[in-house]
Design a protein around this nucleic acid. Structure first.
Lengths: 218, 218
DNA sequence: GGAGTTCTTGACCGTGCGGTCCACCATAAG
DNA sequence: CTTATGGTGGACCGCACGGTCAAGAACTCC
């Protein structure tokens, strides 16, 4: 009986069933980050299992035991990415002293990047939707959910900006949020095609000037 | 000597060197169109040679003899696509009685599509830039050139709209053209993720209202 | 009809892929 | 210590891919 009780105690204290054996020698989050970067840089199809083993430092067996096949590992990394992105977005939108500033950041983010290296990678979710959207409905569905969430977050911020008197109260916040999101994705895309920083900046300024007009003079 | 002269004559009249032999049993343009649709629907990596043989109706040998390898065939199809697209863009921009209407069409095009099937495919050039941009500099360079050309065409149209009094004369035409292009790419992208037609329409309207304001009341 | 040339077909090849499996290892409990 | 258990790494497999090639078909010219 003693052993049974001991087993129950252990099950409460840690997730290992019955008995602990050899513990994992890697941190799941670190592996997911490394894998995410690899998929981000090279895309799904162009990333081989060998690449994944190299960047994660794990053997095939470990990867498969821990995450399943390549596609599942990719989906895990993708979810981790979108969760992080939304976390950062929430933070930016919440921390800005004025909501309008936060919204302007959305359009300025793609150009706050001297070398263009960061922006050139684009957004992993967008890249994946483009590469796999036709073939993998789950990726498409996740993209849809992701952008709906982003739209809602930005929409809240638009409402706040309206309350603060920085945006016309009449406009539909969701439509404006979607317009901002579309504009941002467009900017990232143009950066990805190699548009130079100066032109990108001018474009972002033009978009911001018209989608988020300065009403301080009102 | 007679044969030499004959060769010259023939070279002028048709592209076959020296002597005509078995003629091609396919039309190059038709093959390129079929291949383009396949790449468009499935992407580059997800399209196998077998797919290409199926849609073109040709054997491997013929494809390779006529176009080289898979990548070259893809590049040919891509160039054909961008040429056609620019042709249509030129036509739309030139034929519109008022330049502003033509510019509005740019943002409305993604939603003039009841089932969404057409828009869901997105733009082959954009899809390719996303999928291959990291790995194939030539695709990226072609994307860059393509969008520079589009920018120039749209920029001309903006100038015309300014002359016609439909857009503020002060704005930088190129920056506005780039903003419109970015907005359009953003719209196409959101459609690709499965955004429903109603939301897409509202977004397009919101973008058009702010980027191309109605000045008829002025 | 014969000769010469190109186009077509499909069998064939090597490679690299994703995925499986198993022998070995590290750890915890007794 | 022994034993049980889960983690690890790499050898191995089958397959589908992109790409090659040779033999035959289709055509023109003489």
């Amino acid at each position: 009986m003693r052993s049974t009780i001991s087993v129950v105690d252990r099950a409460v204290k840690n997730p290992y069933p019955v008995r602990m054996a050899r513990p994992r020698s890697f941190d799941e989050k670190q592996v997911l980050n490394a894998v995410r970067d690899q998929f981000w840089d090279a895309g799904y199809a162009a990333t081989s299992l060998e690449d994944l083993m190299r960047v994660s430092g794990l053997g095939k067996g470990s990867l498969y035991a821990a995450f399943g096949d390549k596609r599942q590992l990719f989906l895990r990394a993708l979810h981790s990415y979108t969760d992080d992105s939304h976390g950062r977005l929430r933070q930016v939108l919440a921390e800005a002293p004025r909501a309008l500033d936060a919204l302007r950041m959305l359009l300025k983010a793609p150009i706050d990047d001297p070398t263009g290296a960061v922006t050139r990678r684009g957004c992993l979710m967008a890249n994946s939707a483009y590469e796999l959207g036709n073939a993998d409905p789950e990726v498409l569905a996740h993209a849809h959910r992701t952008y709906e969430t982003s739209t809602a977050l930005i929409g809240d911020c638009v409402v706040r900006a309206q309350r603060e008197g920085d945006l016309p109260a009449g406009a539909d916040p969701i439509a404006l949020a979607r317009a901002l999101l579309a504009a941002q994705q467009g900017l990232v895309f143009m950066s990805r095609t190699g548009l130079d920083a100066a032109a990108l900046t001018a474009t972002a300024r033009s978009l911001a000037a018209q989608l988020l007009p300065d009403r301080s003079g009102d």
